[in-house]
Every structure is written in C-alpha cells, then in structure tokens.
Amino acid sequence: MRALPLLSSIHRLVAYLGRLAVELPRQVGLFMLFLGEIFRQLLRRPFRLGSIIKHAEAMGNHSLAIICLTALSTGGVFALQMAGLFKVFSAENMVGGATGLALTTELAPLIGGFVLAGRVGSAMCAEIATMVVREQIDAMEAMGVSPIHYLVVPRLIAAAVVMPLLIGIFMVVGMLGAYSVSIFLFEVDQGIFLEKLVALVGHNEVIKGLRKMFVFALIITVVSCRYGLQAEKGAKGVGVATTNAVIAALLGILFADFVISYMQLRWSL
C-alpha cells in the first residue's frame, strides 16, 4: 500500500520529463520560426512609419517618468552604498567614477530593461493577446494581412530606437542622483567627482550600455509579442500570457546580460 504513492509520484515525474523532452524542442523550434518570420517581414513593404512613430511615442512618453524615478533612486542608492564602502578606505573621491562605470555598463541597461519589460512589454503582450481573444488577429489574417508585419515589426523598430534612448536618459538622471548624494551627503569635492567620472567613463562605456539595451529591447519586444500572439482564448488567457511574457523577458534579459558582459570582458567589445 505504501508503495503506491511513491509509484504514482515516479509516474508523474516520468510523464513530466517526457512532456518536457517533447515540448521544449518544439517550443524552441516554433520560436526560431517566429524569429525567421519577423526577419522576413522586416524587409517587406510597406514600411509603416506612422505606426512606428505612434509606438515610439507611446513607449517613450509613457515610460519616461518611471525611468527617471528609477534612475534617480538607483544612482542615489548606489552612490550611498559606494560612499559608505569607500569611506572605510578614505577613498570617497572615487564615488563618481565607480557609480558612473556601474551605471553605464550594467545598472542602467539591466534595471532599465527590467522596468521596460514590466511597463512596455506587459502592455504590448496584453494588447496583442486581447486582439487574439477578440478574433482580431484571425480577422487580420483573413484579410490577407500578416499580424507580424502589422503588429510586431513596427513595435520592434520603435523599441530598438526608443529603449536605448530611454536608457541614455537613465544614465544621465542616475548620475544626477549619485552626484547629489555624493556632494550633499558625503561632501565629495565636485571637481574631483567629475574628474573621476570622466576618467573612468568614456563614450566606450556608454556605448556598451546602450548596445546591451538594444539587445534587451529586441528580447522584450519579440518575447512579449510572441506570448501575446500565442494567448489562449478567454480573459484568463490574456493574464496568463502577460505574466509569462514578463517572466520570460526578465529571464531573457538576465541571460543576455551575462553573455554580453562575458563577451565584452573576453574580447573587449
């Protein structure tokens, strides 16, 4: 009698692993096909400039406030922590350089990417999933219009342009936060703060951060649109798709961040 629950658990585990072994390669294959279709549709006319501008405006305007707030807080808190640490070694003057380097190469794209995945990615996914539920995607296809060309491509181009710009703003506002904390709380000399910042953070570091965000923008958009288009019918389908899209985008960002950071370090890219 006691063996029965154990057997049942083993049976469930084997069934789960079996499903995973079939489903995982299938999903990867479908995702690759989706990427291929996006690439094909990117090159097709018409180029929907109006739609791209509309999405860019929505992404930029609606995310600017939250990006600035997050940046101010991130820069300020990071400077606070760094100043506390550097004070032990009487090296508070390094706060500007250290914070600037961390913000441009890592914190701005990573934390900004997380914020944009939650703010823009979820909205994108929910909007497309709702269209699926209301048969609008079927209607589009029935009229001979590719939903990838009409919905995904303009969002992708808009995100690839706007998200790195937002991260550029994140870097500047984050540095303002760090500057305020360093100057007003730790009485670091303004000249030295700026001197160390300029010494450690050049245009290469800024480009590294923006390049990361460019990749994250593609991940956020592709993943969000994919989950949106895959949504199951019903109100629950929209919620499930949106949650899964945000989780998948966050995991994708973390993975890509590691790979890009490694490549930048290994090959000085």
């Binding site: 709702t130 269209m131 209301r134 048969e135 609008q136 079927d138 209607a139 029935a142 009229m143």
Partner: peptide, 10 residues
C-alpha cells in the same frame, strides 16, 4: 469574413 463578434479593430 464577418466574424462572430465582428472583430473590429479597437
């Protein structure tokens, strides 16, 4: 095609 819920674009 006229869809069941009309499927107009919002």
């Amino acid at each position: 095609v006229l869809f069941q819920q009309a499927a107009l674009f919002d």
